[in-house]
Lab assay of single mutants.
Amino acid sequence: KKIKIDLKKGPEGLGFTVVTRDSSIHGPGPIFVKNILPKGAAIKDGRLQSGDRILEVNGRDVTGRTQEELVAMLRSTKQGETASLVIAR
């Protein structure tokens, strides 16, 4: 099931960490939400869960991207702006 979640970045950030699983010589594996932090946009919104697979960030497919690339995409969202995620659960 795909779910679109918009998180408005506040002073505590987006409020979640990510982890890559099953990376191989063929490229990075899928990226999942690792933890929801006690402060930040994710816990206020309440929909994002540990174990959700991140498919898109701000309309860009993240398949084949590294964890570092995904984190850079999320960090490029400025405070007060919205990060738009599509996740699979």
Rank of each mutant, 00 (worst) to 15 (best):
1 K>G: 01
1 K>I: 15
2 K>P: 02
4 K>S: 13
5 I>C: 02
5 I>H: 00
6 D>F: 10
6 D>W: 13
6 D>P: 08
8 K>G: 09
8 K>R: 07
8 K>A: 14
8 K>F: 10
9 K>N: 15
9 K>P: 15
9 K>E: 12
10 G>P: 11
10 G>C: 15
10 G>Y: 08
14 L>A: 02
14 L>P: 02
14 L>W: 14
14 L>S: 01
15 G>V: 00
15 G>F: 00
15 G>S: 00
17 T>G: 10
17 T>W: 02
18 V>T: 15
19 V>S: 12
19 V>I: 15
19 V>F: 15
19 V>L: 15
21 R>M: 14
21 R>A: 13
21 R>C: 15
21 R>D: 12
22 D>P: 05
22 D>L: 14
23 S>W: 06
23 S>D: 05
24 S>R: 05
24 S>T: 06
25 I>Q: 13
25 I>S: 12
26 H>E: 15
26 H>R: 12
26 H>F: 09
27 G>K: 08
28 P>D: 08
28 P>N: 13
28 P>W: 08
29 G>Y: 07
30 P>C: 03
30 P>E: 14
31 I>F: 15
31 I>D: 01
32 F>H: 09
32 F>D: 10
33 V>K: 00
34 K>L: 09
34 K>D: 14
35 N>G: 12
36 I>F: 03
36 I>D: 02
36 I>L: 09
37 L>A: 09
37 L>K: 02
38 P>Q: 07
38 P>W: 03
39 K>G: 05
40 G>N: 02
40 G>A: 03
41 A>W: 04
41 A>K: 03
42 A>I: 01
42 A>S: 04
43 I>V: 10
43 I>L: 06
43 I>E: 07
44 K>R: 06
45 D>M: 02
45 D>C: 09
46 G>C: 07
47 R>P: 02
47 R>A: 09
48 L>A: 01
48 L>G: 00
48 L>V: 03
48 L>S: 00
49 Q>S: 14
50 S>M: 14
50 S>H: 15
51 G>F: 11
51 G>Y: 06
51 G>M: 13
52 D>A: 00
52 D>N: 01
53 R>E: 15
54 I>F: 07
56 E>W: 06
56 E>M: 11
56 E>R: 10
57 V>E: 00
58 N>T: 03
58 N>Q: 14
58 N>R: 04
59 G>H: 06
59 G>I: 01
60 R>D: 11
62 V>D: 02
63 T>Y: 07
64 G>E: 07
64 G>L: 06
64 G>M: 08
65 R>L: 04
65 R>W: 05
66 T>C: 12
66 T>Y: 04
68 E>L: 02
68 E>G: 08
68 E>D: 15
68 E>S: 09
68 E>Y: 04
68 E>P: 11
69 E>T: 06
70 L>A: 04
70 L>W: 03
72 A>P: 06
72 A>M: 08
73 M>E: 03
73 M>L: 09
73 M>G: 06
74 L>F: 14
75 R>E: 14
75 R>T: 01
76 S>L: 09
76 S>C: 10
77 T>N: 15
78 K>Q: 05
81 E>F: 06
81 E>A: 12
81 E>N: 12
81 E>S: 09
82 T>H: 14
83 A>H: 15
83 A>S: 15
84 S>L: 05
84 S>R: 08
85 L>K: 01
86 V>A: 11
86 V>N: 08
86 V>Q: 09
87 I>V: 09
87 I>A: 11
87 I>P: 15
88 A>K: 15
88 A>M: 15
88 A>S: 14
89 R>H: 06
89 R>K: 06
89 R>N: 03
